[in-house]
Amino acid sequence: MKKIKCKFNINGNHKDLLIYEEKPLIYVIRDDYNLKGTKLGCGLEQCGSCAVIIDGEKKLSCNILAKDCVSSKITTIEGLSSNDNLNKVQDSFKKYNAAQCGYCTSGIIISLSALFNKNSKPSKKDILKSLEGQLCRCGSHSAVFKAIENLMKSN
């Protein structure tokens, strides 16, 4: 197995790393950057827990190869806020306590942040599209919708 040198930009933090060519991005995020907010749920692009924003688009980091992200700007859940200044989606989720166990929550917040960054007044269809593939088993969905409703009102 070959290792290669790669430069990453995750949450504005630039790092030169020597990584296995086949390493998926999630392990660079969680292990090399020690950013644990991005969760591993399936490793199969089926649950959305590992979602991150790559160059403005939501992507699933569990299967995407890290080496293919070298020239990209990657944002994880930790990169959405600075100090205690939460982004609007996080703020609304916090206000509406929109999580139960919270395992799925960062992926959901990432998906919605990617959407709201591009479109501050998305339609219901846009919202459902962005949440496609984001699984939650605890049933936090109705609280998530309340948080989204609040977000739409404040935009």
Partner: peptide, 21 residues
Amino acid sequence: IELKTIHKIVTGEYIFVHDLC
């Protein structure tokens, strides 16, 4: 009320057993 866990959950700082290091 603000749930005891919510701030850390929305910022990705809530540590699950999976995240121990």
